[in-house]
Design a protein around this nucleic acid. Structure first.
Lengths: 113, 113
DNA sequence: CTGTATCCCGGTCGATACTG
DNA sequence: CAGTATCGACCGGGATACAG
């Protein structure tokens, strides 16, 4: 990889990754089902996959509790927490951008309100 | 848009978009061929496509000069300039957290688009 | 020089069924 | 509850040819 900007996009540029990290930064520790409810439209498969990739990047942690019923909790790591200013900048820019040019932006096919 | 973070990713989350805007913020007005040289590996088709989508989002402007040979210049709009802090944050984060292993080995010089 | 227009391959993603 | 497995449709994106 030749450009740091690209490197960052590789970490949080996935279809749901930035939003996932954003929710985990806001909500603290969250369970699998809670995350699924926070992202209407995501499939179980994609949620698992994106979480695994974020975990592999060292951004989030995954804790499995040997209980019945099973419980798995996700949280941002110290490394992931360093993304907060970036995600806040994205959130702020998105707010401003949406208000001004909402109808001009091409929405993804699976866009869910 | 349900989540402003997603909205921002829709604008600069494409494969080459963030890097394109980054280069245009750094280099000012750039021609099509100049951008192509700045992004080794991008195809003509993708460059055109990503530029068109950035233009549709109001981030960059496209100016065609009726000359022979043709000349088309791209530049960030005032709206696009508001992305600078965001891209700088992405650049900084990528440098700090992901790019330690990057050396100065460039693309092979026989690599021609 | 700056693009369109095709073709097509591989990965992405959703749907569904099944498991510990 | 929190996954895994599998199949298939879709589309992003590369290669190539052609155009203004």
């Amino acid at each position: 990889m030749r450009c740091p900007v690209e490197a960052t996009l590789n970490v949080i540029g996935g279809k749901w990754k930035a939003v996932l990290v954003w929710h985990l930064l806001e909500g603290g520790v969250l369970r699998f089902g809670e995350l699924r409810r926070l992202l209407p439209g995501i499939t179980q498969k994609m949620l698992t996959q994106q979480l695994r990739e974020l975990e592999a990047a060292g951004v989030i942690s995954r804790t499995v509790y040997a209980e019945v019923p099973p419980r798995v909790e996700y949280a941002v790591t110290a490394h992931g927490r360093s993304l907060r200013p970036l995600l806040e900048a994205m959130h702020a820019w998105g707010l401003q951008h949406c208000l001004q040019r909402d109808d001009d932006i091409a929405m993804p096919q699976n866009f869910v309100m």
